[in-house]
Amino acid sequence: MSETLNFPLASIIIPTYNGLRFLPTCLEALHGQTYTRHEIIVVDDASSDETASYLQATEPAVRVVQMVNNRGLAAACNAGAAAAQGDILVMLNNDTEVERPWLAELILPFAHPEVGSVASKMLLFDRRTVLHNAGDMMGTDGIPRNRGVWEEDRGQYDQDMAVFGGCGGGVAYRRAMWEQVHGFDEDLFMYLEDVDLAWQARLAGWTAVFAPRARVYHHLSATGGGVLASYYTGRNTIWVLYKNMPASLLRRYWPAIIMAQLRIAGAAAWAGLRGGAAARARLRGQLDGLRTLPRLRAKRAVVQAARRATDEEIDSLLLR
């Protein structure tokens, strides 16, 4: 870390698309942080809801990156990172409210030079004792898991600090790691861009930890979800897995991977027959993911050629 070793500048990057109704709560909480060595960057992804004029009139200290066209969450986060000055890049959803010590708790683990990312504890906005994410994990079947999702928070994950990666709704990245893996893959558009980055960081030898006292309250799917989320989740799960999982692990776990995708497809097909538009979108995303896999060969080759972690080290991170 440059400048001040113990107190690095943190750049909080908030992508938003027609999320003006959430921004006042989000920004007010950030202005009250106990860790004051930070900048706030809002990336307006071509909103049509007066976001830009609101920020100009009421938030002069907030830097605004204005996207000309809506290019998706991954591109918006990359644009914010490109404009950021900090050694720590913090991605935060616009529909969140953080506690006062949140940023300080996220910064602390970066004292360890091997740490590339730090995950927040994310809880439901309207049920503040219920977990949504205590760090991301990855299964041998290729399906990412929100650790602790829907569980009552009793501190059951607070002593287990190692995770596969952090949920992009509230995660801090070391800039050196971010630049090494080239940020988010914009072809993903939205959904699983954080899982893709976690894979590449792990392949490159970085570690990820969970900060249990970095608490974030999150409105679920407030500016996304539905058909859109289902399609990109279906497609991107396949893309991310193919792009990142080492060949020996693909060969070892292919039965579990195929069965997981078949279960998802079967459930989506059944729900689609009963009128579920989101389910049909999930199935369409899976089919598009498989159909377009040949386009990812070059990306896979680049990722696998750059990795430093062994197959055994990656295998040890996966949930059985």
Results as ranks from 00 to 15, higher is better:
L5H: 10
I12T: 13
T16N: 13
T16V: 13
L23D: 01
G32K: 15
I40G: 00
D45P: 00
T51P: 12
T51V: 12
L55I: 06
P60K: 06
V62D: 01
R71W: 03
G72Y: 12
L73S: 13
A79R: 03
G80P: 01
Q85V: 04
T96E: 00
E97L: 09
E99L: 14
A104W: 03
I107P: 04
F110S: 10
S117G: 09
L131Y: 00
A134W: 05
M138D: 03
G142E: 03
R145G: 07
R154A: 10
V163L: 11
A176C: 11
G183Y: 06
F184Y: 13
F184A: 06
D185M: 03
E186P: 01
D187E: 10
A204W: 07
W206A: 00
A208I: 01
A208C: 04
P212N: 00
A214Q: 00
Y217A: 03
Y217I: 08
T223R: 00
A229C: 05
T233E: 08
R235I: 04
V240S: 12
L250Y: 06
A268M: 09
A269W: 04
G272S: 10
L273N: 10
A279H: 08
L283Q: 02
D288T: 13
T292S: 04
T292G: 07
A298V: 05
A305R: 13
R308Y: 03
D315Y: 04
L317E: 08
L317R: 07
